[in-house]
């Protein structure tokens, strides 16, 4: 296992596991809300942000983050105000995101390897800042889970009763949307836009199959998420390069 001697591997492993541990429990809230397609739709919007970044010659990741967080808030507002079905709003967001991304990418003349990097991701080329960001998000999710996990579950499970108990439902929903958006953008660099939603949904779905309590579900989803990303870094030999992103997602699928 010569690869273990390389610093980039350990950086990828730590950042990836931190991502898996954060994304899976956050995704579990979305599953309980019957909103597991939201991360998938947000990946399309993040793609718009990337294309905009390439067009404006700015920082694609930063623009993706801004566009995705704002879109997550927007889709929440649309659902609350217009009364459209939740999956309809998500479907519209996904198609709009992808369409805009294609238009912007063609304007930027950036149908090249730069775009593919975001589509398929590569956890092995994470830089220091991205690895640190992953760690920071992990700590943030941990704090949110311990402090507000039960309240977030309450609004996901029975929003009407949560409202009558005086919980700040809208602010909690905004928090969940923002966390989802941030994780989507972070995961984009690691496993790619096409597969990031798998790591947010499948570990939670697997956990629900085997857990015997809600606490266990969240714990197991984090474990499955962390293991999926760590397993994705496995390679039978240093000369064989398996793509970590697709391998992580496949492991998640198989665990289900």
């Amino acid at each position: 296992m010569d690869i273990l001697y390389y610093g980039f591997f350990w950086k990828a492993l730590l950042a990836g596991v931190a991502f898996g541990l954060s994304a899976a429990p956050t995704g579990l809230f979305l599953i309980i809300r019957r909103d597991s397609l939201l991360p998938h739709a947000l990946t399309h919007v993040a793609f718009t942000g990337v294309a905009l970044g390439l067009l404006l010659k700015g920082t694609p990741l930063l623009l993706a983050l801004i566009v995705t967080v704002l879109s997550a808030f927007l889709v929440m507002e649309i659902r609350e105000r217009s009364g459209v079905y939740e999956d309809t709003a998500v479907g519209i967001l996904a198609s709009l995101g992808l369409a805009l991304a294609i238009v912007l990418a063609s304007l930027a003349k950036s149908y090249d390897v730069r775009l593919l990097t975001y589509l398929f991701g590569n956890i092995l080329v994470l830089n220091e800042k991205e690895a640190l960001l992953s760690g920071a998000i992990f700590i943030l999710v941990l704090v949110v889970l311990f402090k507000l996990g039960e309240a977030l579950f309450f609004i996901s499970f029975d929003e009407e009763s949560a409202r009558t108990s005086g919980l700040p439902v809208k602010r909690l929903k905004l928090l969940l949307s923002a966390l989802t958006a941030v994780l989507v953008v972070l995961g984009m660099k690691m496993v790619g836009l096409l597969l990031v939603s798998a790591l947010m949904v499948i570990p939670g779905a697997s956990a629900l199959e085997v857990a015997r309590s809600l606490k266990q579900s969240f714990f197991l989803s984090a474990v499955f998420g962390g293991l999926s990303v760590a397993g994705g870094l496995w390679s039978p030999s240093p000369s064989i390069c398996l793509l970590p992103g697709p391998l992580s997602s496949s492991l998640g699928d198989f665990s289900f």
């Binding site: 579950f153 029975d158 809600l214």
Partner: peptide, 19 residues
Amino acid sequence: DPVLPLTVAETVGLGLQGK
């Protein structure tokens, strides 16, 4: 939810939110 492994105690505990 037939999929959700929510215990009776966990369900009741939700009523303490905001209290």
